[in-house]
Design a protein around this nucleic acid. Structure first.
Lengths: 245, 245
DNA sequence: ACAATAGTGTCTATCAGACACTATAAT
DNA sequence: ATTATAGTGTCTGATAGACACTATTGT
């Protein structure tokens, strides 16, 4: 270790984005099809190398978010998920990737302004199915993202990031049901979510409807950490949501 | 971005270690005194650059653990804490550091086999006090480590990592009290900790004493995630532990 | 005996979950 | 009227916290 001429080695640094949204009552992740080697043709998370040696990590994540998904980083929840740097993970050399988790409100199918050849919303259970061909260690990263989202829903106001500026309590419940993969009692959810201190606040006496009684609208409240937390029911496997009746 | 000659930039990769132990009923962190610039003379977390371009991140963390603290990585809890890569954080250039959290059982004062000039156990509240001079962004990293340890104590069996292979329930309670900074009722803690499924298991009818009734000994149980979790009391500021009577 | 810590029993306020019931809309 | 969703009332089993009490050691 004390060789005089020793110089610390350099590595290539990348950012990868796990972008979640809710579509059709299911948790979906944005995937792009790689156009170049390695893993050409396979599905991968949007991401890329740092632009220049002085670019900030979070800034690089926001830039990729705009370039590859056409989303503005300022309006989204964006947080660090982890570092993935196993030596053999990229055949081009030593690449260390910082994974970020991003949450977007409900979005339509074609992602506008996409830089990559193609980008799709893919349900997480499909993306993680056995047959799915994912580039690099992105399967592992997506799994970590799902797990992170699940636990953050319990203890933080992250669920509101899946909704727009205004939402009904039933819409918020759909977020919990989709991410957790369970069904919840609407009556108990209704009071539970309102009993948590600054989670959601009423947004005027406004209303909105499908074919039942109009629901009150809410906005995200000031608090990010929930006291008391939302309790996730123990997953009994037969409680999993299949279809939205 | 589509300039033909563009090459992705390289960065220097480092690992930093937040090593916690319990001494004198207080949560303490291992700090070394830097011998060279930058921040020569200031206190810093143990850590360093990757040895070579193919060294695994976790392996580098384990190596620094051995070199700078004389601790064997195999016996310790070691987990990724986060990435710190703000451009200006290291005056030598673009250095991105991966922080790891390590938990060690009660250890004596002088850390054997230390590579750095000096290494000390420092109570976290002292290390984070206003006057403390910490190198780089290590104050921020230690703060994140404390917060991580606090929440992990609630939902995982991490507390047993602070104890040895055998421990009494009172010793386990000391861990919770020190890390959370609160006092707990021994009677309620006693049953609570035993009601959690595979948290701790009895280690023979063995015993051990100070000057009261001998206590039963326990070993860490098979489960890592606690169901139900240990509930952390709301911190009312006057509940903080000051001295061990 | 006394002091000190280990361990048990039990009460109470609170809360998650179940579910009957009322309210307000569209058709 | 019927259907569908929004929102309220209330019961019950489980649990966190408070705390009286018993058990087992050293001095």
């Amino acid at each position: 270790m004390d060789i005089d001429a020793w110089e610390p080695p350099h590595v290539l640094l990348a950012v990868d984005l796990v972008i979640f949204t809710l579509r059709g009552g299911r948790l979906q992740v944005l995937l792009v099809q790689r156009g170049v080697a390695p893993f050409a043709g396979a599905m991968a998370l949007p991401g890329g190398f740092l632009n220049h040696a002085e670019e900030d990590l979070a800034a690089a994540a926001g830039r990729e978010l705009a370039e590859e998904a056409g989303l503005a980083a300022e309006e989204l929840h964006l947080e660090q998920l982890g570092v993935y740097g196993t030596p053999g993970r990229d055949p081009r050399g030593r690449v260390v990737s910082v994974a970020y988790l991003a949450i977007a409100p409900r979005l339509p199918e074609p992602v506008a302004g996409t830089d990559a050849a193609q980008a799709w919303w893919v349900p997480t259970d499909v993306a993680l199915a056995d047959g799915a061909a994912l580039a690099f260690d992105h399967r592992q990263i997506i799994t970590a993202g799902v797990e992170r989202a699940r636990t953050k829903l319990e203890f933080s106001a992250l669920a509101t990031a899946f909704c727009g500026a205004m939402f009904t309590i039933a819409e918020l419940q759909e977020v919990y049901e989709a991410v957790w993969g369970v069904r919840l009692d609407p009556r108990n959810f209704y009071r539970k979510v309102q009993s948590v201190d600054g989670f959601i606040v009423p947004a005027g006496p406004t209303r909105k409807n499908d074919n039942g009684r109009p629901a009150r609208l809410f906005r995200p409240g000031p608090r990010d950490t929930l006291h008391p937390p939302m309790t996730r029911p123990p997953a009994p496997a037969d409680n999993v949501r299949t279809e939205r009746a």
